[in-house]
């Protein structure tokens, strides 16, 4: 599901999203408050990749863009030409680079454990990683692991996404307080070794979900 939405977001940024896809996307926006911020995030990332001046967008920018996009079907129903349609989409965005960047890790039940189990005893072919610098980041990726903003915890703040985790089935959840506490203590312990970078602070600073959401997450995590 998320993969489809990502593909549609990417197509919209490229100005290549057809009418049905646009309608689907707009319906998704209505039901998933995490989508507008994701759209916004992709745009800022694209700006940065293009080395354009990156500025913090005003709050609600994504909603405003989505509202404008929401008017698109009406224009099309009046018979806008394909060129106009392309132009409208293109004016919003166009970036293949971001499409490559949003490619994510495939779902492999058991993760590397499964890989490890399949490949015992193979010689250490790891003397090199890959010949081309680009190959690591642009290699085709199959099914993306869904570890996006919390979709199962209704009402959880969007900005809690750094603390959300994918579970084995590929769903996305917000960790219960016990595991959040474990993460905090883990990063505190290893941070002293200078190993951690800012990642732990993204996790630590993530707002806690509403009590009922946290309780739900805790119940699911058990």
């Amino acid at each position: 599901m998320n993969e489809q939405i990502d593909e549609r977001l990417s197509a919209l940024m490229d100005g290549e999203l057809e009418r049905d896809g646009l309608r689907f996307l707009l319906r998704s926006v209505g039901s998933d408050p995490a989508l507008p911020p994701r759209w916004e995030r992709y745009h800022v990332a694209r700006q940065a990749l293009r080395r354009q001046g990156v500025v913090a967008l005003r709050a609600g920018f994504a909603e405003a863009v989505m509202a404008r996009i929401g008017e698109e079907p009406a224009v099309r129903s009046r018979g806008a030409s394909p060129w106009l349609r392309w132009g409208a989409g293109g004016a919003i965005a166009a970036s293949v680079a971001v499409a490559a960047l949003v490619a994510t890790r495939p779902v492999t039940p058991g993760g590397e454990a499964a890989v490890a189990a399949r490949a015992p005893g193979l010689g250490g072919a790891g003397a090199t990683i890959a010949a081309s610098p680009a190959s690591a980041t642009t290699a085709p990726v199959t099914t993306p692991l869904d570890v996006r903003p919390p979709l199962l915890v209704q009402g959880a703040p969007v900005e809690a996404s750094p603390a959300s985790f994918g579970i084995e089935a590929g769903q996305s959840i917000v960790l219960d307080p016990r595991l959040q506490s474990y993460l905090v203590r883990h990063y505190q312990a290893v941070g002293a070794n200078g190993q951690s970078g800012f990642t732990p602070y993204v996790l630590l600073a993530a707002p806690q979900p509403a009590p009922e959401a946290a309780a739900g997450a805790a119940a699911r995590n058990r």
Binding site: G110, E112, A113, A119, P120, G121, G123, G124, A125, G126
Partner: peptide, 22 residues
């Protein structure tokens, strides 16, 4: 669950350089 606790060390990079790597 998948995998076993005592698998031989799995190998991550599958390139035909086994000898060199060894």
């Amino acid at each position: 669950m998948r995998g076993t606790a005592r698998n031989p060390a799995p190998t991550p990079w599958r390139l035909p350089w086994a000898v060199l790597f060894t």
